[in-house]
């Protein structure tokens, strides 16, 4: 299979970038998209050119590292899918594929397709945990939690922190990510003691990091590999208003 890649190349954070064209042959349909980039990089090494920098780690859809913008979509043409889970069979022989880094003021480009997503870490640091010292794992049934509550907490706990929500959002809003992290804990009894503080601190950090305000375009929920719904953002808004009123 033959593909023409148009890939964003940028030397460093402060340099100018541009799309570079690479015609590449010898790809197969069962290669993952990242393997196709590996394939391209191997050819570049042989030619003595600089390889394309891109983020990846688990390559099985759980770490959230492999964020790139492919043909105008976060993580490529499918809904709810990471780049590592995308395969070349989703493209046709002879296709042109445009690959760009995630675009958001809060996610500056480091090199080529790699962006700095540590803004997410700083939101996490503001309260996506409980401060109680829990010691070793407690007896699982010591705190009883209704199944629906546990399930809805799990639904948002599925967030892998990939940043696709920010990447696709016209406002570069981190509302889906932040809401997932907040709701995950605030739904559970373990999260209750610090519930109000968690909402206020984490959303405050979100604003400090220059993420935009959510206007519910709902693009994020289409791209989110974990299938988190924008109703999670509405729930965060409800928790925020409650925290403001009762704190």
């Amino acid at each position: 299979m033959k593909i023409t890649f148009k890939i964003w190349r940028q030397e460093g954070a402060n340099s100018e970038g541009s799309l570079k064209t690479y015609d590449i042959d010898g790809l197969t349909e069962d290669m993952s998209f990242l393997e196709a980039l590996d394939h391209l990089n191997e050819r570049l090494v042989l030619k003595g050119e600089k390889v394309v920098a891109f983020d990846h780690d688990c390559r099985e859809g759980i770490c959230g590292q492999c964020g790139v913008f492919i043909n105008g979509r976060a993580h490529g043409p499918h809904d709810h899918m990471t780049t590592c889970q995308l395969h070349m069979r989703s493209f046709k022989d002879g296709d042109i594929i445009v690959v760009e880094p995630y675009r958001a003021g809060a996610f500056p480009v480091i090199k080529d397709l790699v962006v700095d997503r540590t803004a997410f870490d700083r939101i996490i640091e503001q309260g996506a945990y409980i401060t109680a010292k829990t010691g070793t794992a407690a007896e699982a049934n010591a705190i009883l939690i209704p199944k629906e509550v546990a399930d809805s907490s799990m639904d948002v706990a599925a967030c892998i922190g990939c940043g696709a929500c920010v990447a696709t959002c016209k406002n570069a809003s981190a509302a889906l990510f932040t809401s997932a992290k907040i709701n995950h804990l605030n739904k559970l009894p373990q999260g209750h003691p610090e519930a109000h503080k968690r909402v206020l601190d984490m959303t405050n950090q979100m604003a400090i990091e220059n993420f935009g305000s959510c206007t519910f375009t709902a693009a994020c929920e289409v791209e989110c590999p974990a299938g988190i719904s924008i109703s999670s953002i509405a729930e965060m808004n409800a928790r925020y208003i409650k925290a403001k009123l009762f704190e």
Binding site: G72, A104, G105, C169, K170, N171, A172, S173, G212
Partner: peptide, 12 residues
Amino acid sequence: KNRRSKKDKYIM
């Protein structure tokens, strides 16, 4: 403000 948060646009 939202535009400022997303200064760089995608080519595609």
